[in-house]
Amino acid sequence: MFSEPFAHGNSWVHALDARLRIGVAFIFSCVLAVATTWQQAKFGLIAACLLLICSRPPLRPLLRRLAAVNIFVLFLWLTVPCTMPGPAAFHLGSLSCSLAGLHLVWLITLKANAISLLFIACVATMPVAYFGHALHALRLPGKFVFLLLFTYRAIFLLADEWQRLNTALRLHNFVATSSLHSYRTLGTLVGLTLLRSIDRAGRIHQAMLLRGFSGHFTSLAEFRFTRRDGKFTVAALALLLLYFTLF
């Protein structure tokens, strides 16, 4: 249901230290997020594409993810150029598209895709559980990591639960419309799902206590920084240096 199509590969990107990948993704994302020129964004986009190609992602899920990003970008394409004040680039009937608006939206398109591709190449290439352990190794609070891992576990349970209740509704010939009755039914279903999940949490907690859970999160994952990681770090730093000398 919630698949991780990029997480299980055997490219050298997958073999890199997870901590390093998260660090690189975070630093480069921040650098690109504050970029102000097309050149900077294109530089980032090319770098992200190269890294992504190295991780050999499956194409169909990749396109689906890019669609998720670009729906918001499309919304901006539809609204910003026609409404931004400034000199017009061209006219579409009575609408005039401003030059500054087109410039801004194109910059955003480049940045959004660059950062998202980088994220897919670096972070989506690890299983969520591994990502959590890497965050713990990066000194994020244990409670936060614990919450992340348990939430990840629980979304499968809840989606399943919701599906079951939904099937029951459909068997009773329920079709959701925009009526008060529909909203009331859905609301009751939400309440029921919440209640069941809280009860389920209680049982999980009791089971954990029985197995000697102390309340603290301990991770058994080991991360090793290899020679390959060293080379990648040098390459990433060189790229960063090139970026700041060029722009």
Binding site: K143, F146, I155, S197, I198, R200, I204, H205, H216
Partner: peptide
């Protein structure tokens, strides 16, 4: 620590909503 699991379940509910 005792409340992490219920909070995680509700967080998952927010996710699935």
């Amino acid at each position: 620590e005792n409340r992490i699991i219920p909070v995680a379940l509700l967080s998952a509910a927010f996710f699935t909503a």
